[in-house]
Design a protein around this nucleic acid. Structure first.
Lengths: 236, 236
DNA sequence: TAATAAAGTTAGATTAATCTAACAAATAAA
DNA sequence: TTTATTTGTTAGATTAATCTAACTTTATTA
C-alpha cells in the first residue's frame, strides 16, 4: 500500500513525462512540480526505488517502472473520475473540480472506483477534456494540437486545456471559451503572436501564452486521427 | 485546519460520550476505542487542549469544548452523508459503506459537503439509521430503545443498529433483518435471554448481545416521542 | 486503611515527510 | 579547457503520530 505522498510523486512523474513527451525526469524538475525542495524529492526517490516503483541511478534521470506507471495511471484515473463526478453530478464549476479531486484521488477502495465509473457511465474524458484511463489502464488518445498551432483562417474545436489551474480556467470562461466550442482563428500579429479569434459569434484577442494552453482538434480532420490535411487544416 | 488524526480523536470523543450518555471520557477508554496505546492518546489530548478543542486536566476526565464538539459533529455529518451516497447512489451494501466513509469524511471542502447534501436531498438518517447532523449541526433525535428492552408479545420497528462493524451487519442481514423491518418479540428465555422473534413471517432466535445492538421504536409509540405507554408497549 | 488494581503520565525511540545548509557532479559558457 | 552555473546529494534538524517501558495517581477492595 502506498502513502498519500508516494502516490503524488508517482502521479507527478507520470504527468511530467507525459507533458514533456519524454520518459526521463530530473530531480529538480520533480521537486519544482511538487513544490518541495530537491532534497525532499531526492529522499523520496530513494524510497520509491527501493519499492521498485522508479528506475533511478545517482545523478541520473528518473523513469517510472512498469509497476510505478500502473499506480500512477490508477491515481490519474481516480482523479479524473472524481472531477467528472463533481462536475456532472454535484454541479461544481469547471475551475473548482481539480482541488477537491486532489484529495479524493487518494481514497483507497477498488470497489469505490469501479462503482463510481459505472455511476458516471464509463466516461472517457474529464471536464477538462483529459482522457480518463479505463480499468485496465488504457487511455483514449486524442490527436490534439494547441490553439497556437492552428493556421489563420482555420476553424477548430476546443477539446481540452493544458493548464488546469483555477486561475487559468476562470480566465478561459471569461473569454467565453469552453470544451466543444468552435473557434475560428481570424488573424495573428506577427510581432507578438496576439491572436484574434471568434467564438459563438463573439470576437476576442488572446495572447500566445493563452493559445498554447488551449487544446483543439481541427474542424476538417477526422476524429481520432492526427490533423492530416494541411491544405484543409494547416498547422503553423 | 485539523489533521486527519485530530479529526478522528474528536469524532471518537463525541461518539464515546454519546454512547455512554456521559460527557466525560477517560484516556484509556479513548485509546481503546481508537486502537492506540494510552500514551499516544495522552499526547494527542495535550495537543487538542492547546488548540482549545478539549477540556482536560491531568489525571482528570476529558470533555469536548464547544469548538471541539462543532468539529466532531461536522466530521460525523460528512461520514454519514458519504455513507448515504455510497448506499443510495453507488449501490454499496449496508455493511460496506462504513470503511470507505472513514476515509471520505476527511475530505476538506465545505462546498463539497453542501453539494453532496443537496444531491442526496438533505437526508436525515444514514443507511444504519443514524441521524445526520444538518449544516447547523442540529440532529434529529429518534427516541429509540434496543430490541433487548422490548417486552415479550410487543411489536416494534427496527430503526438503526448500535454496532456498525461489517461483521455484525452481515450477521443482521443473515438473520433476515433490515432497517424499517417489523419485529415481533415472541418469547424470551429467562436463563440466557435468548429471544425468539418473527420478521416478515420468519421466526428466528437471537442472543442477548445481538438484541442489545438493534435499535427499534415500538409500534404503538408516537413517532419522535419516547415510548410512553407501557401498557401498549412495555419495556422490560 | 493499607495493598492491589486500574487508569493515566512521562521519557525516550521510531517512521514519514519535510526543511536548511553545505557539498558534489554534470553541463554550459567564456 | 577552465570557470561558472545548474542539477543533484548528503547530513542534520523538525513535526506529527505512533510505540515501549517505566513510573505516578486514583480507585477499589480485602
Amino acid at each position: 500500500m502506498l502513502t498519500y505522498t508516494e502516490e503524488n510523486y508517482l502521479k507527478a512523474l507520470f504527468k511530467i513525462s507525459f507533458d514533456n513527451d519524454n520518459e526521463e525526469v530530473g530531480t529538480n524538475e520533480l521537486a519544482t512540480y511538487l513544490a518541495v525542495k530537491p532534497a525532499t524529492a531526492n529522499d523520496m526517490l530513494k524510497k520509491l526505488k527501493d519499492k521498485g516503483l522508479v528506475d533511478y541511478e545517482k545523478y541520473g534521470k528518473i523513469t517510472l517502472t512498469k509497476t510505478g506507471k500502473k499506480f500512477a495511471i490508477d491515481v490519474l484515473r481516480k482523479h479524473r473520475l472524481w472531477e467528472t463526478f463533481l462536475f456532472e453530478k454535484l454541479d461544481f464549476s469547471w475551475d473548482e473540480v481539480h482541488e477537491v479531486a486532489e484529495q479524493l484521488e487518494h481514497i483507497q477502495s477498488q470497489k469505490l472506483v469501479d462503482k463510481l465509473d459505472k455511476f458516471l457511465n464509463y466516461p472517457e474524458f474529464d471536464p477538462h477534456g483529459d482522457t480518463i484511463p479505463n480499468k485496465k489502464g488504457e487511455m483514449k488518445v486524442q490527436f490534439k494540437k494547441t490553439l497556437s498551432e492552428v493556421a489563420v483562417g482555420s476553424s477548430c474545436k476546443m477539446v481540452a486545456v493544458k493548464d488546469n489551474s483555477s486561475s487559468f480556467l476562470q480566465y478561459v470562461v471569461k473569454v467565453g471559451l469552453g470544451i466543444n466550442n468552435e473557434i475560428k482563428v481570424l488573424s495573428k500579429q506577427e510581432y507578438d503572436k496576439l491572436t484574434d479569434i471568434e467564438v459563438n459569434g463573439v470576437k476576442s484577442s488572446v495572447s500566445q501564452k493563452f493559445a498554447e494552453n488551449i487544446f483543439v482538434v481541427c474542424k476538417n480532420c477526422a476524429v481520432g486521427k492526427p490533423c492530416s490535411e494541411p491544405s484543409v487544416c494547416e498547422i503553423k
